[in-house]
Nucleic acid binder design. Sequence first.
RNA 1: GGCGAGGUAGCUCAGCUGGUUAGAGCGCAUGAUUCAUAAUCAUGAGGUCGGGGGUUCAAGUCCCCCUCUCGCUACCA
Length: 684
Amino acid sequence: MEKFKRTTVTSALPYANGPVHIGHLAGVYIPADIYVRYLRLKGEKVLFIGGSDEHGVPITIKARKEGVTPQDIVDRYHGIIKKSFEDFGISFDVYSRTSSKTHHDVASNFFKTLYDKGEFVEQTSEQYYDEEAKQFLADRYITGTCPHCKNEHAYGDQCEACGTSLSPLDLINPKSAISGSIPVLKETKHWYLPLDKHESWLRQWILESHKEWKPNVYGQCKSWLDMGLQPRAVSRDLDWGIPVPVDGAEGKVLYVWFDAPIGYISNTKELCDGNPQEYGKWETWWKDPETRLLHFIGKDNIVFHCIVFPSMLKAEGSYILPDNVPANEFLNLEGDKISTSRNWAVWLHEYLEDFPGKQDILRYVLTANAPETKDNDFTWKDFQARNNNELVAIFGNFVNRTLVLTQKYFEGKVPARGELTDYDKETLKEFVDVKHEVEKLLNVFRFRDAQKEAMNLARIGNKYLADTEPWKLAKTDMDRVATILNISLQITANLAIAFEPFLPFTSAKLRGFIHLPKFKWSELGSIDLLPAGHQTSTSELLFEKIEDDVMEAQVQKLLNTKKANELANYEPKPILENIAFDDFTKLDIRVGTVIDCQKVPKADKLLQFKIDDGLGGRTIVSGIAQHYKPEDLIGKQVCFIANLAPRKLKGIDSEGMILSAEDADGKLVVVSPTNGVKPGSEVK
RNA sequence: GGCGAGGUAGCUCAGCUGGUUAGAGCGCAUGAUUCAUAAUCAUGAGGUCGGGGGUUCAAGUCCCCCUCUCGCUACCA
């Protein structure tokens, strides 16, 4: 740590196609904000960089669907996201966006530098081109019939009906989603970052030099490195994004994952160029070896920030590499994965409508239950318990007791401290220890435990009051009461400092109560924060209890979402276009009896069937292993397409396709005749 | 199937390079207390550390096998 003079902290750029929810906050922004506030309080030089990620295909699709421009979409969500962060006290030095002019220039130059240095590999491949719209089609812009489930509305990268990932070339009857015309294959050139060439130094850098990274991060990197790295395309044929700054690259833009992390750099530049006196030169924050670079991210981003982006920085040559990448796991909500598309989330802007002014409760709960080592679950019950039993009962209560007693006995003025007893000294020593403990934990990104440790300060205070009982002594020994309250008030002031990184709004409110305008982290542990005679205010409450009905309303809101989702899921898919009878008769569907059935080794989803088809038997491989036990199917009759061209699966020739119905929840159920029939019977 | 991360008290989690009766917070029980938002304080009950085998004088901690959860990856005619 000593070798660094300053710290650049980045937090993952949220994708501007939707608002942000508690998962974002818990995984990335709260930990980053706590860390940054902590460093600032210590007087260290630090920049906290954020911004919206505004390029990429999903934004263009959303725009098209709504009949607006991509810029409209990102303007809308950038605004909402930025406001949410401000509302929750995420203290970015800059929150900009990748559609900015600065970013376009920086990213463009970055690419150009790598291009000129020969760090890319050029490769030409065949991709679909829309001759009417005169453009190449991104995978998402091609629709067609899924070769697996025959859904006519499959996308070029994925069929949403059966969940299969596809390549555009797999689609039957591909169609352009832009013009509706039939696309043609055309050669196109793209640039690739040859990650394989970076493998050896990455291996050394991560696996040897950064064993201190969190296990989930280190393990994920090792997994990727051991699998062997492949070149990654850095350009796309698209009109939304940063144009590839090279001759002959018309109609091509930088691939979104390439431009997004550069956004950290551009946003730094924007900040520094706008106020050089305050922030200095942007290069200092990115190129000086005495700068410590930290990326706060969620686990989905590990590979980009540990492997891809460092490779880009290394290839460029003049940049420093991240010193650590503290990545969190995921937060679930009431037992289910948070999902933007299923609206299964607690949105930050909605939370503030329901709980105005209570952002610190959410900050507290999300930190106390942060997914630091594994996925965690957010429940409203836990939210209520932590508020009522911890914030209200321990923290708020201690502050309130102290201030009320001070008011009662000393008109709100800090009383002078007399001689300290041994017990007083013991108590003081304990809360000096808290400082060291919090620091130790924050330094290794253990925010959950650090916050718990800060809470200990209030516990110490409550115990101190209970043990010394100033309300009894008030009848006999006011000097002693003065000392006790003086110490209690010092503890209160310490709480304001200790909680500033975690609960900034509460800290500010508390400082208002005790009129403590200025403070530093180094003063934590001091018993001279409030001089004798200093005035404190009659307190309002720091936290309020949350009643059951309020929580029930939130749970009900989620249940309603779930119900709405179920209804939506139950809607059957629209019927496909009519076909001629001849087309039907081309299909030869038969009934067969399962003679044998077993799992295909080394495949999770495949079962291998031996079917009696009345004609000597045949082998069929079917992807239903997750829905049936092999032995349960033996002896059953199934329907299968008998004249489908055979295909090898995991080395086994599959001679046909077993028919299954897909239930609303995605469960596959084999179609079977209601009464037994002779094997080989035709289905008409 | 391969790889990665997890599986420790009712719940959420600590347990560093193996070392005496396995810890914390919440919840629960009992007692004390009233300055405080029925808040606080003390005490206590609760775990064969996912299962099995092994190494060792000694294993939650190291090795092997199995099992469950999550993620990446392959497979879904």
